[in-house]
């Protein structure tokens, strides 16, 4: 398509890849946190809650710096991941995905936690008395009843990831073709005299992606509402 240059396409594809991997990776983690926060009671829960929410309130630059401390190749965690899984994050697109995942996590946990809290445990008890074990109860009752929260979490997480800037530039740097996602590319183009056209095109792209995510989420929520009952009032 002539609307976008080759390098702009590359930026778009990279952004989508980074966000998709970030959301895919944080979904199970976020669900686990949401489940623990919604259903378990234990001492220190307030602390866990605060820790999960930290990326939401910290300056993103600080989050990026903390990631740098934890995942640098000479840091214990970074070295461990490099040695066992061959995963490196610094100056790699995987680093951009990790930063986006961490920044999206609190929003995803919040959305899913609310929806899990709204599932009536008495319905799960009923399923158990009807012969369903824990797993079938979870997949047939709990999961469908909090599906809307999971959709909402995916969309929120995607929107947050696609717009991630501070933690990404601090942790994974701003390397064209590797870690330069849409917001980073817009920032770079703003530094270059005469690149207003590119800034505009990339900004429009950002708006379209965010709008698309919103419309998709509305559609998903409506569709699941229709499936579940012509009765929804």
């Amino acid at each position: 398509m002539a609307l976008l240059s080759a390098s702009e396409w590359e930026i778009l594809v990279l952004s989508l890849k980074v966000s998709a991997v970030a959301i895919g990776a944080s979904l199970p983690v976020a669900f686990a946190f949401a489940w623990v926060l919604a259903r378990w009671r234990f001492p220190g829960k307030v602390l866990l809650d605060a820790l999960v929410h930290l990326p939401l309130v910290l300056p993103p630059v600080v989050t990026g710096w903390l990631l740098l401390l934890a995942f640098a190749t000479d840091a214990p965690l970074g070295r461990f991941l490099n040695n066992t899984l061959g995963l490196t994050f610094l100056f790699r697109w995987t680093g951009a995905a990790l930063a986006a995942a961490v920044m999206a996590l609190p929003l995803m946990v919040r959305a899913m936690r609310l929806s899990i809290e709204n599932v009536d445990p008495r319905l799960e008890q009923a399923a158990r008395t009807l012969g369903a074990g824990r797993w079938r109860t979870f997949t047939a009752i709990t999961l469908p009843l909090c599906a809307n929260g999971i959709f909402a979490a995916l969309v929120l997480g995607f929107a947050r990831s696609i717009g991630e800037f501070g933690a990404t530039i601090t942790f994974a740097s701003n390397i064209p073709g590797e870690t330069q996602t849409l917001p980073l590319a817009i920032y770079s183009a703003l530094q270059v005299p005469g690149a207003e056209g590119q800034v505009t095109r990339l900004a429009v792209l950002s708006v379209l992606l965010s709008l698309g995510a919103l419309v998709l989420s509305e559609w998903l929520v409506r569709r699941s509402g229709q499936d579940k009952g012509r009765h929804v009032v």
Partner: peptide
């Protein structure tokens, strides 16, 4: 076969 006072039919 437990019939609960609040019935607990699965709403979805």
């Amino acid at each position: 076969g437990y019939v609960f006072q609040d019935l607990r039919l699965f709403p979805h």
